[in-house]
């Protein structure tokens, strides 16, 4: 059996190479290993959010102050961000979101379906460029590429981590 979340260190390396300093997150099992890696890095500040939209404005403030932020969230949290993405869109703030997907692959919980299916179109409707990755060997380079565009242009970028990258969650069944 392959190592669980073996791609997580690749995302950490990409964030580290891009000098990302503020890690805004609402935890998800898909991000748990990555969050631990970031926590262990004294140059990265972990900012737990009460709702995902706070991450969009936090990232804007970080950029005003000369720092780079990333959002680590689950697909259901994308819905909480929609209007706040207007801030990044109107002011052309960099926005990098790494999103663990639900409702794609062996999803146990039907309540995840509506927002899971709406994640990509909702982001695209707000002007965010979306790429999805399901190959564990490509996760790091996709995050790196999205990050370079987000911070370099600047632009709004989302990388969707396909649910098949995560272990199946069956709630004990």
């Amino acid at each position: 059996m392959p190592e669980t979340y073996a791609w997580a260190p690749d995302i950490y390396d990409a964030l580290k190479q891009m000098d990302v300093r503020q890690i805004a997150y609402v935890p998800d099992a898909g991000h748990a290993r990555l969050l631990k890696l970031c926590e262990a890095d004294n140059a990265m500040r972990m900012v737990p959010l009460t709702t995902e939209e706070e991450g969009v404005s936090l990232a804007a403030g970080a950029w005003l102050g000369g720092e780079r932020a990333v959002m680590l969230i689950q697909s259901s949290g994308v819905g909480n961000c929609i209007n706040m993405i207007s801030l990044a869109n109107t002011c052309r703030f960099p926005l990098l979101m790494v999103i663990s997907m639900r409702a794609q692959h062996r999803e146990f919980n039907p309540w995840q379906k509506p927002m899971g299916q709406a994640t990509r179109p909702a982001l695209e409707a707000m002007g965010v460029t979306v790429t999805e990755v399901d190959d564990p060997d490509q996760v790091g380079r996709e995050v790196r590429s999205a990050g370079e565009q987000a911070y370099g242009w600047p632009d709004m970028m989302a990388v969707l981590l396909h649910q098949s990258l995560m272990p199946v969650k069956t709630f004990g069944k």
Binding site: S57, A62, W63, L64, G65, G66, E67, N83
Partner: peptide, 25 residues
């Protein structure tokens, strides 16, 4: 001064990101 014309509910966390990035200001 960074005046928000939208982003209702975002001012405080925008300030947080800025404060973390600029601890001497």
């Amino acid at each position: 001064t960074f005046p928000l014309w939208g982003a209702m509910g975002g001012a405080a966390t925008l300030g947080l990101g800025l404060a973390l990035a600029q601890p001497d200001k």
